[in-house]
Design a protein around this nucleic acid. Structure first.
Length: 814
RNA sequence: GCGGCGGUGGCGGAAUGGCAGACGCGGUCGCCUCAAAAGCGACUGUCCGAAAGGACGUGCGGGUUCGACUCCCGCCCGCCGCACCA
């Protein structure tokens, strides 16, 4: 073979220049008869340089984009930057560099890398969410939500990060009660904040999961997060004070087993109930203690139940019983009504509390050996009308009865809270609202958008947005009465920016509107969305909410933003997540420099199933590099001729072997790519084809080898576009991306003979060549004649024969 | 505790109920070379055997089946999500 060396540094820039010069990957919004396909990778947050996860993400998306173009679809594959956010701002606090400047330089490195990697992007649709031409429309959409009552301000107990000096959405607080961004322990504060009414959409967000092709675990995470519980609200009355306390329960069938009543320490009535009584001090002490405990401590399931009696009683509405009231920290203010009926016989937590405080425990449902029993069964010791009924049936009967008596009603509860979107930070999209002493909150008129983010000199937040210090910006006139007024100084959560960017891509240069409904009809929904599973709840839930809210406003037609979702696994190093603190970070740039973009991209896809975490190995990269070099050398050696076509009927011998292999690989790769993400096995199949070419490169005709090499290049193009273009050009003189995706010739997928597997009692004993289409009898006879089959059958009685045509014969002997 | 996903050679990983281990890495041997690198080729699950061949083998224990990595039941282990959610 030739002495020439595969040199990606020479090959790759050449093709990148052609694609840039000819704007090969741009796509028009005008339909042209081809079916549309919108493939999108989650947009990057531009901070520093791109890392391996980015390379994987965009290598995956690019493979999908290329494949779909080649099978005749009009593919939208855009790119942008999620540019507002805390890291750039924290960097500014430390260094004084304006976040706009650090963000711009990071965006430049991303742009450079994406071009260096040869990702096929339509650059005419590029934007950063921090650009006024984008956030103008983020503000406009905010006002649309405000108009519909879906954006509102209220005072509430909210999560506050003392380090970042801002409120956080529930979704941004980890299970340990720490800030998702900086890790500080989050505090509770009572503050007035902006919210989006995502809870209005809880049911639809839940139901429509059935209509989208997402990984089951992501759907499960969203279901868990929304946390829909069906039950009833039941009113317990405190007669002494004449106050009704509704509680939410999923088990109204156990109402007759309620023996006490518990309120959350944060419940506003707890102190009022004990004011002036001998219980007051004890209750105050308990409440104060509960408040000082962290969420983590309080949330510990193993912790012993504690609480204090309030010295009051409420009436159980189903039987008129007076049951004692308690305050206990196992009841949460943020779920249900902040008060519960306690049924120790049929609830583990209530049982534990009853044990600790010596409260009565009553069985009202049969089943289980001992209490607490939370399963199904017949009602007992409840009421003659319900005793003997199955509890599920009784549940409905009891709720109906409560409803008639005005003591309760069927009810649904959600874990999902409204989305807190305001942040007391600088580097975000300003909220386009003016506070007027006369008119109250007034939206900034549409024609005055965007409300531009002013420059500041001090980025450090002090519990208020740094914007509050910019007096000349804050002071404005009321759009309604022209009187003096002040601008809202909070900015929006960056997740607001990324909740609609996929809509803007469709119509990115529209100066008249956020997007045109007709254009969106052409592109939406995204056919294939690709990104990390870390966004399973936050981003993916918010984007679904936005899409549904805008669909309700008739701004668009899609009900779901992302028809199919693929969640990629992490790339680890020595089995651990890459991080600066572990010192195990490797940069894609290093490998792209050393081996070329094609090798780096191909290796990432070859490592294993892309939804799985995989460990980076330097030896593995070498292997893929060798494969591409072998392919390239084949192309160089064979050189160009007329486009390689083969007449199947004229093939024989090794030419037939090579041609068959090529067609088998076409079918294999096509199957692995269409709808599946089996890129690792697709690449492996192309490797087999290249190996086959080498094996027969002395014996097969050049034209056959040329065809096989062109096929290999064509099939590997979605993963290694540069070298594939080069090799395809070498052997055919044509541009591979302008060729349709190859289709296998059925005549070459079949063979005249096949290898018949001969089993005795299910164990393989021999293999013989059999003619294709042989009858069952012929196959049986062939198997019986196989020498090693004879050895295992002789002296035994054949009791059964299984023949699988074109595959195997299994002889069952005794 | 609930839900989801996974467990296959020395390693990463392949296998519509039908030849377990494709492909790659690593390893052994050979060719090329003055030599090396690169390249090319052969072999490479474990055990027994000179070979032919045989036995064993996909976390564990059962089951269904002519035949199970694959389907069913019961466990063990690992990862991820949720969790005092009434």
């Amino acid at each position: 073979m030739s002495e020439a060396r595969y040199d990606p540094a020479a090959i790759e820039p050449r093709w990148q220049e052609i694609w840039a010069r000819e704007r090969t990957w741009e796509v028009s919004n005008e339909p042209d008869g081809r079916p549309k396909y919108y493939v999108l990778e989650m947009l990057p947050y531009p901070s520093g340089e791109p890392h391996m996860g980015h390379l994987k993400n965009y290598a995956l998306g690019d493979a999908v984009a290329h494949f779909n173009r080649r099978i005749g679809r009009r593919v939208l594959h855009p790119m942008g930057y999620d540019a507002f956010g805390l890291p750039a701002e924290n960097h500014a606090i430390k260094t004084g560099v304006h976040p706009r400047d650090s963000t711009a330089s990071s965006i430049e490195s991303f742009q450079r890398q994406f071009r260096r990697w040869g990702i096929s992007i339509d650059w005419t649709r590029e934007f950063g969410t921090h650009e006024p031409r984008y956030y103008r429309w983020t503000q406009w959409l905010f006002l649309k939500l405000y108009e519909r009552g879906l954006a509102y301000r209220k005072e509430a107990a909210v999560k506050w990060c003392p380090n970042d000096q801002t409120v956080l959405a529930n979704e941004q607080v980890t299970a340990e009660g720490t800030c998702e961004r900086c890790g500080a322990v989050v505090e509770a504060r009572q503050l007035e904040q902006w919210f989006f009414r995502i809870t209005d959409y809880a049911d639809r967000l839940l139901e429509d999961l059935a209509t989208i092709e997402w990984p089951e675990h992501v759907k499960t995470m969203q279901r868990n997060w929304i946390g829909r519980s069906v039950g009833a609200e039941v009113v317990f009355r405190c007669e002494e004070l004449g106050i009704d306390y509704p509680v939410f329960t999923t088990r109204p069938d156990t109402l007759f087993g309620a023996t006490f009543f518990v309120m959350a320490p944060e419940h506003p009535d707890v102190l009022r109930l004990v004011e002036g009584t001998e219980r007051e001090q004890a209750v105050r002490d308990y409440v104060n203690h509960a408040m000082t405990e962290s969420n983590q401590e309080r949330g510990d399931v193993e912790k012993a139940k504690t609480g204090v009696a309030l010295g009051r009683t409420v009436t159980n509405p189903v039987n008129g019983e007076q049951i004692p009231m308690y305050v206990a920290d196992y009841v949460l203010m943020e779920y249900g009504t902040g008060a519960i009926m306690a049924v120790p016989g049929h609830d583990e937590r209530d049982f534990a509390f009853a044990r600790a405080y010596d409260l009565p425990i009553r069985r009202v449902i049969e089943g289980g050996e001992e209490l607490p029993y939370s399963g199904d069964g017949l009602l007992v010791d409840s009421h003659p009308d319900f005793d003997g009924m199955g509890n599920r049936e009784a549940l409905e009967a009891i709720v109906a009865w409560l409803d008639r008596e005005g003591k309760g009603h069927a009810s649904v509860n959600y874990r999902l809270r409204d989305w807190l979107v305001s942040r007391q930070r600088y580097w975000g999209c300003p909220i386009p609202i003016v506070h007027c002493p006369q008119c109250g909150m007034v939206p900034v008129p549409e024609e005055e958008l965007p409300v531009e983010l002013p420059d500041v000199t001090e980025y450090k937040p002090k519990g208020k947005s740094p914007l509050a210090a910019v007096e000349e910006w804050v002071n404005t006139t009321c759009p309604s009465c022209d009187g003096p007024a002040r601008r809202e100084t909070d900015t929006m959560d960056t997740f607001v920016d990324s909740s609609w960017y996929f809509l803007r891509y469709c119509d990115a240069n529209n100066d008249e509107a956020a997007f045109d409904r007709k254009v969106l009809r052409e592109w939406m929904p995204v056919d294939q969305y690709i990104g990390g599973v870390e966004h399973a709840i936050l981003h993916l839930l918010y984007a679904r909410f936005f899409t549904k809210a805008f669909a309700d406003m008739e701004l668009l037609d899609a009900q779901e933003p992302f028809q199919a979702l693929f969640t990629q696994g992490m790339i680890t190093r020595d089995g651990a997540k890459m991080s600066k603190s572990k010192g195990n970070v490797i940069s894609p740039a290093t490998y792209v420099e050393r081996y070329g973009a094609d090798t780096a991209r191909c290796y990432i896809l070859f490592m294993g199933p892309p939804d799985q975490d995989v460990d980076w190995s330097d030896e593995g990269v070498e292997g893929v590099h060798r494969f591409l070099a072998r392919l390239w050398r084949l192309g160089l050696e064979l050189g160009a001729s007329a486009p390689a076509a083969l007449a199947p009927e004229s093939l024989a011998g090794d030419d037939l072997v090579v041609a068959r292999k090529a067609h088998w690989v076409i079918e294999k790769v096509t199957g692995d790519m269409a709808g599946r993400f089996a890129f690792n096995t697709a690449i492996a199949a192309v490797m087999e084809l290249v190996n086959e070419c080498y094996r027969h490169r002395e014996s097969a005709a050049p034209q056959t080898l040329r065809f096989a090499t062109a096929t290999a290049a064509s099939l590997v193009f979605p993963f290694a576009p540069h070298v594939a273009s080069e090799v395809y050009e070498l052997v055919t003189g044509e541009r591979v991306w302008e060729q349709p995706w190859p289709t296998p010739d059925p005549a070459l997928l079949e063979s005249d003979t096949f290898e018949l597997v001969c089993q005795v009692n299910g164990k393989v004993r021999d293999r013989v060549t059999a003619p294709a289409g042989a009858s069952r009898e012929e196959l049986e006879a062939l198997a019986l004649a196989a020498p090693n089959v004879r050895a295992h059958v002789d002296g035994h009685e054949i009791v059964k024969t299984i023949v699988v045509p074109e595959k195997l014969v299994n002889l069952v002997v005794r």
